[in-house]
């Protein structure tokens, strides 16, 4: 229950609702991190610097959107990373030589993801368990296709990811596009209201005549589609395939959604916040190398930034509860 629902909207015009403040908090943290990086290495702010810095944000942003499509339902996907790995090996093995086979397999895996959502909805199974079981299947299928790392990216895919975009590099354009498209689909459009409703109060929507199975199939299908995009992006950047490449993305993607303002309870996500969350997690890895600290501590900084952002948010929430 969002605390701002019961409060009159216009009583404090200069105060942001706590939900809207969350992505702003995340954006502030991102700017701060970027400022530190630029202070240590001014060339990071150049076109080429940004591009190198943000190269791996593309798969992470796609992965975060995949996680968001499931978290908006109040579900959790523990199989996303291995699924991204599967898309990575399918595309690395066949996309160059046998594109129709690769496309067929990718479409099949997308359908499998949607079917998983339908199964979870129809039998009212806990998502965490089903996606956990499925994670073994994705990883196994990936290893069956490429038992050892290998394969190659088709030239067009590698070229697409190296595309020289005007003004700012591709990852930033993609960030803006994803944030906008997500904001429209999940927040402002009528469909978005219904989809978020299924996370907040599914019984109410079912009673109003909406189909839970259709909603979950759609959102899990969407998660599958973003997962595939993340896998393709990995192929394009690494120009090789590895069934284990995707594994870290399971938790990184969930963390990006939550840092960006999402809630595990369902119904509350922020697409622009999720994009920012993904960039925060990416830069938290890079930050240390600019501060001349041993990369041994990189994971600590990542954990510390997660804690800091979420602790600040809890502080804001407390302040808000006192003010109300």
């Amino acid at each position: 229950m969002p605390p701002d629902a019961s409060r009159p909207r216009l009583s404090a015009p200069f105060r942001l609702s706590p939900l809207a403040a969350r992505p702003l908090l995340a954006a502030l943290a991102l700017l701060l991190m970027f400022a530190v990086i630029v202070w240590r290495e001014p060339r990071a702010a150049s076109y080429l610097g940004l591009r190198l810095l943000l190269n791996f944000s593309i798969p992470l942003m796609f992965a975060a959107f995949a996680a968001m499509a499931v978290i908006v339902l109040g579900d959790i996907d523990l199989g996303l990373g291995p699924f991204i790995g599967l898309a990575n090996v399918i595309s690395a093995r066949w996309l160059a030589g046998n594109p129709s086979l690769a496309a067929l397999l990718l479409v099949l895996s997308l359908l499998a993801y949607a079917a998983m959502g339908a199964l979870i909805a129809a039998r009212r199974l806990p998502s965490i368990v089903i996606t956990l079981g499925a994670s073994f299947i994705w990883l196994g299928a990936g290893l069956l296709i490429l038992p050892t790392p290998g394969g190659a990216a088709p030239d067009w895919l590698a070229a697409l990811l190296r595309l020289h975009t005007p003004f700012v590099p591709l990852p930033l354009w993609l960030a803006v596009a994803l944030a906008l498209a997500g904001q429209i689909l999940f927040i402002t459009s009528p469909a978005g209201v219904v989809l978020r409703g299924f996370g907040g109060a599914p019984e109410a929507l079912i009673r109003a005549g909406w189909s839970l199975i259709a909603a979950k199939s759609f959102l899990y299908g969407l998660a599958g589609a973003f997962g595939i995009l993340a896998g393709l992006a990995l192929t394009g950047i690494n120009t090789t395939g590895d069934a284990n490449f995707g594994t870290p993305y399971t938790l990184l993607a969930i963390a990006a959604v939550i840092v960006g303002g999402g809630e595990f309870a369902g119904g509350i996500v922020s697409p622009p916040g999720t994009v920012i969350g993904a960039l925060i997690l990416l830069l938290s890895g890079a930050l240390l190398s600019f501060l001349d600290v041993s990369t041994d501590w990189q994971l600590s900084v990542q954990g510390g930034i997660l804690i800091l952002v979420l602790a600040l948010r809890a502080l804001l929430r407390k302040r808000d509860a006192h003010a109300a």
């Binding site: 079981g133 499925a134 994670s135 073994f136 299947i137 994705w138 990883l139 196994g140 299928a141 990936g142 290893l143 069956l144 296709i145 038992p147 069934a243």
Partner: peptide, 8 residues
């Protein structure tokens, strides 16, 4: 690979 698939 098959081992993971069957486990799942």
């Amino acid at each position: 690979g098959l081992r993971y698939v069957l486990t799942g």
